[in-house]
Design a protein around this nucleic acid. Structure first.
Length: 708
DNA sequence: GCCGCCCGACTTTTT
DNA sequence: GTCGGGCGGC
């Protein structure tokens, strides 16, 4: 959809095999292991799905099997981590079981499920049904405020610590008890205050969306019984990425019966740093003695050389479950190793490789008739900033590209402005939203007025919005300020009123446009931006956003399964959990630049792993020492990178690399050696060959007496 | 007190 | 190459 035109999209390569390789992509029938996973219905099941082994296929077929077995679509939940994954799963399910059944399946992210549970039962854990969901920027502001701190870096560290605690299922008390050192103790105290404010605002953060439903199930037997009865079978995707709270929620939802299918790959666990714990996978067989473990080892993606390199690297990690990928796609091209002088050189080599492969030059030097698309290529690297030099060189070569993992559409200031208004009409008590909305656009209400309003509201224990209408407010503030506040209050009420009753795409759009013109939002953008062009770009984003909202009100088929007409208010309620989805329609033929993390789950015919150097991959920052766990996660990252490739993989290292302002000697990553590449089969870079010649020459000269 | 300049750093990311 | 923080000067 146009909405996301300026957002980097994940690309799914075209289904047709780009090189002339006769190879059936998805076999018509399930293989043996897949079949066992699909037909195991009466007990807990762990599917260890190696990279490219058809895991989504298994999930979708299992859903079909469960339906066939007599379960209703509403009784099946399939949980993912990202909206994108949920969307893909929903579509694949739709293709297999038909739109009618697919519509009622509970295919969603963990967080959306949490929202659903809390909207229904939130009152049982102290939440009004109209609670707000704060995004991480709101939470950061809240933390700064609660901690009385203007230092953003410190607030961020607090936010990080608090989130990790929440992901471990700890509350403020528990956090304070486990805190070591002064920093942590302070963070725990901040956490307590943040939790109090969240409660007062009737707001939750993303972590709460998992933790509170868990609390609900633990505390409330009736709710537990009801939700356990609701879902007769739960499928979990990427189970290796679950954190302690998500795992506990899964257990609480499935209860004693343990009717679930967990799908994941311990070798692709790369999110330990944000609280995911592989302990969950270790714990699974202990918590469920009846667990059937089924390994999917046949890889349908990569050719032999690539797969052997991947297996060789991951063999360096201790095994949780024995598993070794194999493929019947033939050896394919050898993995290619390139040494580059610098980042610039590396990017130039990458460009040259794309051009030569596209021109029909294969690694062996023979030519093939077909032309490759730009979208068949990806350059993968460890850290975002590494994209820059590739962007430069690709632009210079006029090759279209996109960068994954950029700023989300919903993170843009203009979109968040509007979301603040929407949140406020959903939940009048949402003070952070109030503060943003009341000052955007400027309406003569400054921090003086707001501070006074805050002081008025605090002792009365009302939200800022409620305080607007207190009869005694006029006594506490200047007349002009009160008028401005009342006008704002009326604006919000008007919007709220209309949003409750407006449904359907066209009406919704008209309402939203009316609103924007009422608050003069376009003018506000031009005022706040010195560049005309930038302001216009922002306004276009706003219009895209409006379009997108309106279409959801109409219940468009293609907007993620919301098939009924919804009021603007209803759409506004779900907005903070719907982070953008890529639209398949505007998939473009462009080269992908992506971090290794963002590349997980995707694949390309031709992949380049860039700057595979010590210090970058595995990553090491100045002072910290590399623990065994850290190194193992880095190794899994390398494994993920290698297994993204279908036909060719090109790994490059830097001889010199930039580190901050200066340049340091580049040491090839230990993972290069671990790939156990057959050196004899390695293609030599023309420049390296030249250099060898030169070195040999120099050696001869040096050895010859009398010539010095 | 505010503004502007300079210097340093610069993982990974979802909801 | 860019962003943010800190310091110095006005």
């Amino acid at each position: 959809m146009a909405l996301l035109a300026n957002r980097p999209l994940a690309i799914i390569p075209a289904p047709e095999a780009p090189m002339n390789r006769p190879e059936p992509r998805a076999p018509a029938s399930l293989n043996n292991a897949q079949m066992r996973a699909v037909h195991h219905l009466d007990g807990p099941c762990l599917v260890l799905a190696g990279a490219g082994s058809g895991k989504t296929r298994v999930i979708v077929h299992k859903i079909a099997r469960l339906l066939q077995h007599g379960l209703g679509p509403k009784q099946i939940a399939a949980l993912t981590f990202t909206n994108k994954a949920a969307q893909e799963m929903r579509e694949r399910a739709k293709a297999l079981v038909g739109p009618r059944a697919a519509k009622d399946l509970a295919v969603s992210t963990f967080h959306s499920l949490g929202v659903r549970m809390l909207r229904a039962d939130g009152t049982r854990v102290g939440l009004k049904p109209n609670f707000s969901i704060l995004d991480s920027d709101d939470v950061l502001a809240l933390i700064r405020d609660a901690g009385g701190c203007s230092d953003n870096a410190l607030a961020r560290r607090w936010q990080w610590a608090i989130s990790l605690w929440k992901n471990q299922g700890l509350d403020a008390d528990a956090a304070e008890a486990t805190a070591t050192g002064d920093d942590q103790r302070v963070a725990a105290r901040v956490m307590r205050r943040v939790q109090e404010r969240l409660q007062a605002y009737q707001a939750v953060d993303f972590d709460d969306l998992i933790q509170l439903p868990l609390l609900l199930l633990q505390r409330d037997a009736e709710a537990r019984a009801r939700w356990q009865a609701q879902f007769q079978h739960i499928l979990v995707d990427e189970v290796q990425d679950t954190n302690a709270v998500q795992y506990a929620l899964l257990k609480a939802l499935t209860g004693e019966r343990g009717l679930f299918t967990a799908v994941g790959d311990d070798d692709q666990s790369i999110y330990g740093w944000r609280g995911a714990t592989i302990d969950n996978l270790k714990q699974l067989p202990l918590d469920y003695p009846a667990l059937s473990v089924i390994a999917l080892e046949q890889n349908y993606r990569s050719t032999g050389h690539i797969l052997r390199a991947a297996n060789a690297v991951i063999a360096g990690n201790p095994k949780l479950f024995e598993k070794k990928l194999w493929s019947d796609l033939g050896d394919g091209d050898p993995v290619r190793l390139i040494e580059c002088d610098s980042e610039e050189h590396e990017a130039e080599r990458a460009v040259a490789r794309i051009q030569s492969l596209r021109a029909g030059q294969t690694d062996g030097g023979s030519t093939s008739g077909s032309t490759l698309r730009f979208a068949d290529f990806a350059v993968l690297y460890r850290a975002n900033h590494q994209a820059r030099v590739f962007e430069q060189k690709l632009r210079a070569a006029q090759i279209p590209y996109k960068v994954s993992g950029g700023q989300s559409f919903f993170d843009r200031a203009e979109i968040k402005d509007l979301c603040a208004w929407l949140r406020l009409i959903v939940n009048n008590d949402d003070d952070p939203a109030f503060l943003r909305a009341v000052t955007t656009p400027k309406r003569g209400i400054g921090h003086q007025t707001l501070a006074a309003l805050g002081e008025f509201a605090a002792p009365r224990k009302t939200s800022l919005f409620d305080a607007l209408f207190a009869p005694s407010l006029a006594a506490a503030l200047k007349g002009k300020a009160v008028d401005a506040l009342h006008e704002f209050g009326r604006d919000v009420h008007t919007l709220q009123e209309r949003a409750t009753h407006t449904t359907g795409t066209e009406d919704a759009k008209a309402l939203l446009l009316d609103w924007l013109s009422d608050i003069r939002y376009e003018q506000h953008l031009h005022d706040g931006e010195d560049s005309q062009k930038l302001a216009e770009a922002r306004w276009r984003n706003v219009l895209d956003f409006i379009d997108w909202m309106a279409r959801r009100c109409g219940g468009d088929e293609d907007t993620g399964g919301a098939a009924q007409r919804q009021s603007v208010l209803q759409v506004a309620q779900t907005i903070s959990v719907i982070i953008s989805l890529a639209d398949r329609g505007d998939e473009q033929d462009v080269v992908t630049l992506s971090t290794l993390h963002a590349a997980k789950g995707l694949e390309w015919p031709h992949v380049m792993l860039a700057s595979v150097n010590e210090g970058l991959l595995p990553f090491r920052s100045g002072d910290d020492d590399m623990t065994a766990e850290r190194l193992q996660e880095e190794r899994r990252l390398m494994y993920v990178g290698i297994t993204r490739a279908r036909y060719t993989l090109c790994v490059s290292t830097l001889k010199r690399r930039k580190k901050g302002r200066d340049t340091v000697i580049g040491v090839p990553s230990r993972f290069i050696g671990e790939m156990k590449l057959d050196e004899a089969k390695l293609q030599e870079d023309p420049r390296a060959r030249l250099k060898k010649l030169r070195d040999a020459m120099a050696a001869k000269v040096a050895a010859a007496p009398g010539l010095r």
